[in-house]
Amino acid sequence: MEELLNILNEVCPGVDFTKETALIDDGILESLDIVTIVAEIMDVFDVELNVDDLLPENFNSAQAMLELIESRRQ
């Protein structure tokens, strides 16, 4: 989780990513941020994500992103 939080804080400083659960729905993260986050996640976690993964529900919380990463690791 710590590596993911580092990525998120780099992309969007000043947000408590451990608590937010509506990052997309509330407009805290935008489409452009998601593309950046996906690219960083693939690099740091060495997983393959694709355009089908760019769904709001996968990025509404740090936990959801972590679950996405875990699902791609399996």
Binding site: V38, M42, N50
Partner: peptide
């Protein structure tokens, strides 16, 4: 698209 989702990419496609 997936081939181009790489670190540092500049895009206006969402």
């Amino acid at each position: 698209i997936s081939r181009h989702l790489r670190r540092g990419v500049a895009t206006n496609a969402f």
